[in-house]
């Protein structure tokens, strides 16, 4: 099977200045890659390029089999992007926001309730306009929309930002579950230890280039990847490999 993401000498501009200066990266289906680096290193630009939001200026790139230059619309259909700022409408409730995302993607809205519950957004909170929720709760709602959409590539820009410890564990569990089901995940983080614990590989960036790639510490036995049911119940700690939930397992990935 082809890589979920394949970039060769990828250059992308932010205005007149290069945000990415010749990035080579390949990410397989089911692989979790963490991107670390200082501010301005190009982490967010890399995610935006992979989401089809930042045009490829030179080099070559394909995401989920769609060429970044020839078919950016195809790329966008298959990815889920959690940016710094959650793409939510303040006046709409959490439920309405998730339903809008699903309807826009042509997916059944019934997926939304389970995803929100999974992210701890239920009951009264789900019926509250997201503008009144805390930053962490808003992030959970945005993540619920992504989980409900079930894309084949998750692009998570500092997914732990504004999250409490329980939220961080939940994010780690969701990433692990997604990976088990063949979803490729690229996430950014400023916390190297956290990035290593979540990822199969860690990509260090500086000045818009990949400066180093090293192994992550995520334990992922091959037999478990092929048999999600063999995984144990969720435990505390980011290295835990929880049981897949219907939210993720229920629908086919959007690719």
């Amino acid at each position: 099977m082809a890589s979920a993401v394949h970039l060769t000498s990828a250059v992308a501009l932010a205005g007149r200045f290069p945000a990415l200066s010749g990035v080579d990266l390949s990410v397989d289906h089911g692989e979790v890659v963490a991107v670390v680096g200082p501010n301005g290193a190009g982490k967010t630009s890399l995610l935006r390029l992979c989401a089809g939001l930042l045009p490829l200026s030179s080099g070559q790139g394909s995401v989920l089999g769609h060429d970044l230059v020839e078919d950016p619309a195809g790329v966008r259909r298959g990815v889920g992007f959690l940016g710094h700022a959650p793409a939510l409408y303040d006046e709409l409730t959490a439920t309405e926001n998730v339903r809008f995302v699903l309807r826009a993607a042509g997916l059944p809205v019934s997926r939304g309730a389970g995803a929100l519950e999974r992210l701890g957004i239920g009951g009264r909170i789900a019926r509250t306009p997201v503008g009144r929720l805390s930053a962490g709760q808003r992030r959970r709602v945005a993540l619920a929309a992504l989980v409900a959409k079930c894309p084949a590539l998750w692009l998570l820009d500092e997914p732990h930002a504004a999250m409490d410890p329980a939220g961080r564990e939940l994010v780690a569990a969701l990433i692990a579950e997604a990976s088990v089901q063949g979803v490729a995940v690229i996430l950014t983080s400023h916390e190297l230890a956290l990035a290593r614990s979540l990822a199969d590989r860690v990509v260090s960036m500086a000045g818009g280039r990949v400066s180093r790639i090293f192994e992550g510490q995520r334990s992922a036995p091959d037999d478990c990847r092929d048999d999600p049911g063999a995984l144990g119940a969720p435990a505390s700690g980011v290295a835990a490999r929880p049981t897949p939930v219907p939210t993720l397992a229920g629908g086919a990935h959007v690719a």
Binding site: R76, V79, A85, P86, A87, Y89
Partner: peptide, 17 residues
């Protein structure tokens, strides 16, 4: 202003609409 919220423009571009 509805599309000028934090991230909502990107969300719309990725929505598939």
């Amino acid at each position: 202003a509805i599309e000028s919220g934090e991230g909502t423009r990107d969300g719309l571009r990725l929505s598939g609409l």
